[in-house]
Computed example of a mutant assay.
Amino acid sequence: MKTKPLHPSGLPAELSVGEVARRSGVPVSTLHFYEAQGLISGWRTDGNQRRYARDVLRRVALIRVAQAVGISLADVAAALASLPEDAAPSRADWSRLSAVWRDQLNERIEQLTRLRDTLDDCIGCGCLSIDRCRLRNPADRLVAEGSGPRRLLVRRSAESTPAAKAIPRS
């Protein structure tokens, strides 16, 4: 019987897709999706069985936490691309990534707060209750800013978009 290589922790260094699913709490299909999106990587054994390095558990945890707070998979992929592929994300990595995501979350909180505070009177453009709207738009001045509920949309500058923010590796 062939023995599994060991991780420095003394535990098996590689895990089957089923073991990763069980340990991470995500379905096997989700792991396959994450892999297809380039968020995690694995390999196949000579017997064509899927294997992952133990470090993938922390990557999956990072993905799940980011998704739970509304970070897009594109932003998660960009963040993970800045990390070494052969090691689990460290506390310093998480601190650096979460600092970038904190700005996005603060923008979303501001937008949701504005929406909550004006939800009963307005949908953001003033067209539902012109007679008592606190966000009046005389002569449709906001059309120059684009379509949609301009007063309630978060206006992010080009510098604050995830693609524009390089996530430097420290």
Score class of each variant (00 low, 15 high):
95 S>I: 10
105 L>W: 13
111 Q>I: 01
115 L>R: 14
108 R>G: 03
92 A>P: 05
115 L>D: 10
101 W>A: 00
104 Q>M: 13
116 R>C: 05
89 P>M: 01
89 P>V: 02
108 R>I: 06
87 A>M: 05
86 D>V: 04
105 L>T: 03
88 A>E: 03
95 S>M: 06
98 S>I: 07
96 R>D: 08
111 Q>H: 04
100 V>F: 10
104 Q>A: 12
104 Q>G: 08
90 S>F: 00
99 A>H: 11
86 D>M: 04
88 A>C: 03
113 T>Q: 13
105 L>H: 06
109 I>P: 09
90 S>H: 04
114 R>H: 12
102 R>K: 12
98 S>M: 11
113 T>M: 08
97 L>N: 01
94 W>T: 06
97 L>E: 00
112 L>V: 07
106 N>S: 13
89 P>L: 04
99 A>V: 05
98 S>V: 12
99 A>N: 04
119 L>C: 14
105 L>A: 09
93 D>C: 00
93 D>M: 00
88 A>N: 06
92 A>D: 11
118 T>Y: 12
90 S>R: 05
92 A>Q: 13
113 T>R: 15
95 S>Q: 15
108 R>T: 08
96 R>W: 05
104 Q>V: 06
92 A>T: 08
96 R>G: 10
89 P>Q: 00
113 T>H: 09
112 L>K: 07
108 R>F: 00
107 E>H: 12
106 N>F: 14
113 T>A: 12
110 E>G: 07
111 Q>L: 02
117 D>W: 05
105 L>D: 03
92 A>C: 04
119 L>Y: 08
118 T>I: 08
109 I>R: 10
103 D>N: 06
103 D>Q: 15
